[in-house]
Amino acid sequence: MSAVIEARDVIKRWGATTALNRASLSVGRGVTGLLGANGAGKTTFLGLVLGMHRADGGSMSVLGMDPWSQGLEVRALIGYAPEHDALPPDVTAHDLVRHLAQIHGLPRREATARASDVLYELGLGEERFRQIGTMSTGQKQRVKLAQAIAHDPRLVLLDEPTNGLDPMQRDEMLALVRKVGHQLGIDVVLSSHLLDEVERVSDSVVILDAGRTVAGGTIGELETRAEAELVVEVDTGDVRRLVTALKKAGIAAIADGDRVIIALENERVYDVVRDALVAAHIGIRRLERRRTSLQDVYLAAGAAGAES
């Protein structure tokens, strides 16, 4: 499977500010979350993908093309929904979506038909001839999504698509994003600073911090990539005796309330823990490998960024 977007050591500066600092990442098929705090460089990265800016260093490939020198070809195959307001208030949703589909190369007749179809698909069938200025925030976000997919792009870039939405609208929008990525077969890059929405709809995640890529991979990979640890929850007995016994056996362990967190350096650790529990007469409620959540990875990335 070839990467949809491949970036190597990409640098982009805005005056004295370095927005992307040797960022390297790979975006594959499906829905990819581009996660990072505000100012992490997400929007700048999307601008580079679209060929709207020229990188100051590094290399990029989008759908197998150089987005700067082949910008027209790349943009013909990409849909984009920006974070900021981008919809004219005095035009109907159908007219706008049809017009932008034509701008992306579709003949007028086809663009007209697809504008209706897409707006129906996104739940705006009855509203499609309403002026955009009279629509709610949630409907406007759907119009943004509709114009991004009407020309059947291979890749859609969605920049903070849930901005300004209430919780119910947010759930609906995320369901639509997932539908675009998984049912309509369009690869999606979802840029967001909200961890939970990325976690809910994405197959893969790239985490940016201060212009650097600090983590990337499928959600499964990221959650298990952290240092392996065992967690023992003690039911009866002295936690400190278990820690002492493990340290004597050369295994790193720390007490955390009624839990002991043990470094799982190899499979022998399980035997040592079992023997230590028996020797110390300790009863346990649970013994399991510690799973690292995406939140842990995100927080660790933020902490690493703050230290550097």
Binding site: E73, Y80, P88, L100
Partner: peptide, 16 residues
């Protein structure tokens, strides 16, 4: 209106 409404960014994200 293209600049005021922000639709210019959609045009420049298209093959223009």
């Amino acid at each position: 209106p293209d600049r005021r409404s922000g639709v210019l960014s959609l045009y420049l994200a298209a093959p223009l």
